[in-house]
Nucleic acid binder design. Structure first.
Lengths: 242, 242
DNA sequence: CAAATTATTTAGATTTGTCTAAATTAAATT
DNA sequence: AATTTAATTTAGACAAATCTAAATAATTTG
């Protein structure tokens, strides 16, 4: 079945909210979509009629199996197009969201699958988020603190427990921020300290003139190895695949 | 300014009709868009209000300067996407129209221009139709008979004057058909006969499995040189650029 | 040229998605 | 527990794009 762009946007937004929080509320969704609660209620009724939603008046709501399937296809399209825009057309990763918002509503399934192959089946989009496969399977990310991160698993900093200025100063100095990719090289059993490879990026603004057709990475990756104490490790949360 | 997909479709259809015929009529447009004359009239009023159209009630209509500009941008997007779908994603040229109908409404100008560069500024789409440049300039095709075709100008057979079986047999034997690309190598003043280089193609259907990511041409080009008499040349019409 | 036919427009309705303002339900607070 | 506050839904309206049926204008034809 085909759904309007507007419906697809609702489905995608509900999906996003129910993944992060649990049940979704009318206000939260109105805020997410920059619209009015009354409009949300109107659309919820339609989505319920179309059996994409589990919804009881005044009680919150979430997508059912079918709704989730549709949401995952939209997410798949969005992220594949973002990958295309960055890797093939040379856009910066911070310029592609709005364009992908439009492209994700193109309906052809053959198009998505061929695009996927053309891009050589990328696993993550330019922001590091996982791309669902054609079956809607998506690598789910596990969140743990650094102490529990397996050796040699690439992970991404997702949140910081202790946000004191002292902690932030330390992290800044070691080039660790939200979104930073890192990997544990070695664990020392003596004091539970860790040797961590950190990948930081110098943000570079690309002008249309600079960017070329080739899959050029304009972000310069800087890799450093730092040592992290058990105390710090406990307060750095990361996500990794599987 | 941004226009709805529906408005863009009207503008494109009007453009198409006014290029082939002159003034456009309500019924012709309704037929082109597979809609009702009353709906056409409704939209015409809106397009007139937005100053894209020259329109007097009951008298026919056509795009003005601004409307034509918009139409050309849509045509540009449509044809660039078709080129992309065939050359990069490996679709057959007969499968891409409907997908391009959707893609042509994606609004980002930066996207179109980068796509154009990524594709290395193609001049024609997979059906041989010219692609307008970013300024809206489009190579207009001139139709003449073969006698008037300038030397060394690549042209495409567009129609045949004398369609007798004898003529068709001759053309078939020389590998000339509608759509055939050819070029005059030499003109003999003695009898106005021509030496013509003919490029014929073996059409090959690509299945999704066969097609690769590379820009592989699946059509095998066969080039031959043939001699054409004045009598035949007068009855073969071709189009060429400029 | 008047009548018949065809083309076009108008009038009024429908669908989708949105809105404001009012009413209702749920949650929080005293 | 009663009241206040916040969240949610309903009622009614609107814009865009479409439609059917009826009215009007233009064209064709006898």
């Amino acid at each position: 079945m085909k759904y309007s762009s507007s419906k697809e946007n609702y489905v995608k937004a509900i999906f996003h909210l129910q993944e992060t929080h649990g049940l979704v509320t009318t206000n939260a969704l109105a805020n997410e979509l920059q619209t009015r609660p009354a409009s949300v209620t109107d659309m919820l009724k339609k989505l319920k009629t179309q059996k994409l939603l589990i919804y009881e008046k005044y009680k919150g709501f979430k997508l059912n199996q079918e709704g989730r399937k549709i949401a995952l296809q939209i997410v798949r399209k969005h992220r594949l197009w973002e990958f295309f825009l960055v890797e093939k057309l040379g856009f910066g990763w911070d310029e592609v969201h709005d364009i992908a918002e439009e492209l994700e509503h193109i309906s052809s399934v053959a198009l998505v699958d061929r695009l996927d192959r053309f891009l050589d089946y990328p696993k993550t989009d330019p922001h590091g988020d996982p791309i669902p496969d054609s079956q809607g399977k998506i690598i789910t990310k596990v969140q743990v603190d650094l102490l529990q991160l397996p050796l040699k698993k690439t992970a991404k900093v997702s949140s910081i427990g202790d946000q004191s200025p002292e902690m932030l100063e330390l992290l800044t100095h070691k080039n660790i921020a939200l979104g930073t990719k890192l990997e544990i090289q070695k664990k020392f059993l003596f004091d539970n300290s860790l040797e961590v490879k950190v990948e930081s990026f110098t943000r570079e603004n690309r002008t249309p003139e600079q960017a070329s057709n080739k899959q050029s990475k304009k972000q310069v990756a800087v890799k450093t190895v730092v040592t992290i104490s058990e105390h710090v490790a406990k307060n750095v949360y990361v996500t990794y695949e599987e």
